[in-house]
Amino acid sequence: MLKNFKKDRCYIIAEIGGNFVTFDEAKKLVDLAYESGVDAVKLQTYRADTIVTKTAKFDLDNVGEMVQHELFEKYQIDFALHKKVFDYIDSKGLDWFSTPSHKTDVDMLDELGVSAHKLGADDATNLPFIQYVASTNKPILLSSGMCTLEEVREMINACLVMGNDKIILFHTVSNYPTYPEQVNLLAMQTLKREFPFLTVGFSDHTIGSTACFAAACMGAEVVEKHFTYDKNADGPDHQLSANPQEMKEIVDRIREFEVMKGSGAKKPVGKEITNRAKNRKSIVTIKPIKKGELLSMENIDIKRPGHGIEPKYFDQILGKRADKDLKEDEVLSWSDLS
C-alpha cells in the first residue's frame, strides 16, 4: 500500500524515470524531490526489446523524429539499479513504485516489493496487460492519455473483473510537452463524475507549475509531475519536467490551498466572531430621546458598532416608545424599548 496516501490531501508524485541512467543521478533527483516535499517518487521500468520494435519512430516536440528503440535502450535500467534506487527512496520515507511495460517488468517489480503499479497511456488499451497487472492486487494507477471515455471504461472494467478496485485514474494528455490549450482539466472532472467510486488525479506533461496547482484546486486527489535537476540535461523528459524550485512551488501551493479550502461550512471564523460586534451596524440614536418618546426617522439611524438591535428590525421598531431616557449616539437594545 501507499503509506503516504491520505484521503484528505493531494498525493504528489515526482516522476524521475527517463531522467537518469546512473545511481548518482537518481540519488540527486531523490534528494531534491524529498526536499521539495513530495509524497512519492516513481520510475519507469522497460527493456527496449520488449517495449518496441526496432523500426518504430518518435515524432514528438521534445525529442523530434528518432528511432524509439535507440532511446529506450539508452535509458533502460537493470534490476540492480532499480533496487538501489528504490532502497534509497525508501530511506527518505517516500513511497516508491514504477511504470512497467511488459509482464516481465511486472514480475521484476513485484520481486523488488513495489507497493503499486502505474500504467502508462501506451498500455491504456492493452487489456491483457492491464489484467495481468491488476491480478497482483496492488493499487494500480491508470493513465487515460489518448483515450476516449469508452476506452477508459474498458480499462477500468479490466481491473474490476480481476477483483482489483484499488484504482487511481489519471486525466492525462499524452503530448510532450502539453500546451495550455490542450490540458482540458474539465475532462478530469468528467472522469470524477463518471467514476465517483475511484480516486481521480492528474498526470502533467505541461511546462511549468500552473496545471498541477489548478488541477488540485479542481479536485485532483493525486498529482504526478516529471521531475529533473536541470531542464537542459540530456534526456527526453527534462524539458517538460519540474525543476526543484517548480516542484516545491507545486507542493507548497497545493498544501496552502488545502488549508484555504476549509470545511465548506459557511460561518464566522477567527476574528470575524468579534468583528461581527465591532464592525457591523446597529440601530442607534442620533439625538437625545426622552422616556416615552416615539422612535422615528428623526431620532434613530443605522451605524456601527454591531452589538445592538440589527438593522433588519428598523421598520419594526419605528413607532415604539423609549423605555428610558436615551442619549445621542446610543446603541439601542431591546430592553430600551417598550
Rank of each mutant, 00 (worst) to 15 (best):
S101Y: 15
C147W: 00
K271Q: 13
M162C: 07
K290G: 00
G262K: 10
G93Y: 02
C212Y: 01
V173H: 11
K278E: 09
N126G: 09
I89Y: 04
A33S: 13
I168K: 07
C159R: 02
V331C: 07
H226T: 09
A187W: 08
D234F: 13
F5W: 09
R9L: 10
P288L: 09
K225Q: 11
N299R: 08
E73K: 15
D252A: 13
Y313F: 15
G264M: 07
Y132W: 00
D90N: 13
F86P: 06
D107L: 11
T148Y: 03
T190A: 09
V331G: 08
H307Y: 15
I13W: 05
E154G: 00
N279F: 13
T99F: 06
L112T: 08
I130V: 13
I12H: 02
S263K: 13
F202C: 09
V251M: 01
V251L: 03
I302P: 07
E70G: 11
L185H: 08
K327C: 00
V85C: 02
K7D: 15
I273P: 03
K271L: 14
V259W: 11
K138N: 05
T210Y: 14
G201D: 04
F86A: 06
S296R: 08
V269Q: 15
C10K: 02
A322R: 03
A26N: 01
R321S: 12
S144G: 01
K271D: 14
M260K: 12
P177G: 05
C147S: 10
K290N: 05
T125M: 13
G17W: 02
L332V: 04
T172H: 11
D252L: 03
G262L: 12
T99I: 06
K327W: 00
G18S: 00
N232D: 11
E194S: 15
I250A: 04
E194A: 14
Q182N: 11
G17E: 04
I250F: 01
H205T: 08
G235L: 02
V173C: 12
M155F: 01
L295Q: 04
D165F: 01
A40W: 03
D123E: 13
V38L: 09
A121N: 02
V106C: 04
V152N: 03
V183S: 08
